[in-house]
Amino acid sequence: MSSSRTGRGPVRGGVRVPALLVPLVLSALVVLVAGCQRSGPGDGPEEPHTVNVERSGLSMLLGAGDLGAGWRADDARPGLPPWPWEQDDCPDYRSSDYTAKSHRRAAVERYYRLPDGSSPAHHIVETYEPGWAERNVDDVRAVLRRCASYLVHGSRVSFEIIDPHYLGGVGLLVRGRIAHADTPTTARYFVMVKRDETVSTISLPDLGNQAAVDTIAAKAVARLG
């Protein structure tokens, strides 16, 4: 993410991520997880749009047990989480092209960790103004088209839509990869589901099989009510 914005962690190769995601190759992939801004983006550079943070969405966040044995959940983070699909390291990405994010009414997020310190999971739930959740889905699809593959400091970041009509049409399943010259490829899964004006986005490390991802995604849908 852009280093010119306010973030929650160090800048690595132009990507701002939390301190727990310090490896450069991982931070390049997890730009969809961490985000980099603490206030709502505007419709344009001269039209800031204020978004109020509400805590009513906490019940829609996954619990640690929803991810499986051994996971521990952090407290939900205070302050407005960023839009989870920013891609400032992608040459074809322009934040101002994606206007739905400036019409969020509220958003909450939580991180989940395993005792071994391996890659965390992340969940963000956003509520949009009427009509804007669907436009947000369109924006996400556009980001994934424009930034399907690009280079970051010699490593190739890529995103593939595994299922464009996931969970019977209410969601989107994406696999992100970063290919390194001298180390194994890193993979991560992203699940986005929408119900009315609420959008739930989960980021998961590679769990070894899609069935595990499907189970967690179904629980996220149930949390939306």
Rank of each mutant, 00 (worst) to 15 (best):
S2E: 03
S2V: 01
S3N: 07
S3K: 04
T6Y: 12
V11M: 07
G13N: 06
V15W: 05
V15D: 03
L20F: 07
V22F: 02
L24E: 15
V25W: 08
A28R: 05
L29I: 10
V30L: 14
V30S: 12
A34Q: 06
C36T: 03
G40R: 00
G42R: 00
G42E: 00
D43P: 00
P45C: 14
E46T: 11
E46A: 09
E47M: 01
H49M: 04
H49C: 01
R55V: 09
G57A: 08
M60F: 11
G63Q: 04
G65E: 07
L67R: 04
W71G: 11
D75E: 09
R77Q: 14
W83E: 12
P84Y: 06
P84W: 11
P84V: 07
W85K: 02
W85M: 07
D88R: 01
D89A: 15
C90A: 06
P91F: 06
D92N: 04
Y93R: 14
Y93H: 12
S96N: 02
Y98E: 04
T99P: 04
K101C: 12
K101D: 14
S102K: 00
H103Q: 12
R104F: 00
A106W: 06
A106Q: 08
A107C: 10
Y111L: 10
Y111R: 09
Y112G: 02
G117F: 04
G117S: 11
S118V: 03
S119P: 00
P120I: 07
H122W: 09
H123F: 06
I124S: 09
T127V: 10
W132F: 11
N136C: 05
V143Q: 12
R146W: 06
R146C: 00
S149D: 10
S149Q: 14
V152L: 08
H153N: 07
H153W: 03
R156Y: 01
R156C: 02
R156W: 05
E160S: 14
I162M: 01
D163C: 15
D163E: 15
P164K: 05
Y166Q: 07
G169Y: 12
G169V: 12
V170F: 11
G171W: 00
L173G: 08
R177D: 13
I178L: 10
I178K: 04
I178C: 04
H180V: 14
P184H: 13
P184K: 13
R188G: 14
R188F: 14
Y189T: 01
V191K: 11
M192T: 08
R195S: 10
R195D: 09
D196C: 02
D196T: 04
E197Y: 10
T201A: 04
P205S: 13
L207I: 09
L207C: 07
L207H: 08
G208I: 14
Q210C: 01
A211Q: 15
V213D: 07
K219C: 11
K219G: 15
V221M: 15
A222E: 01
R223C: 03
R223P: 01
G225Q: 13
G225I: 10
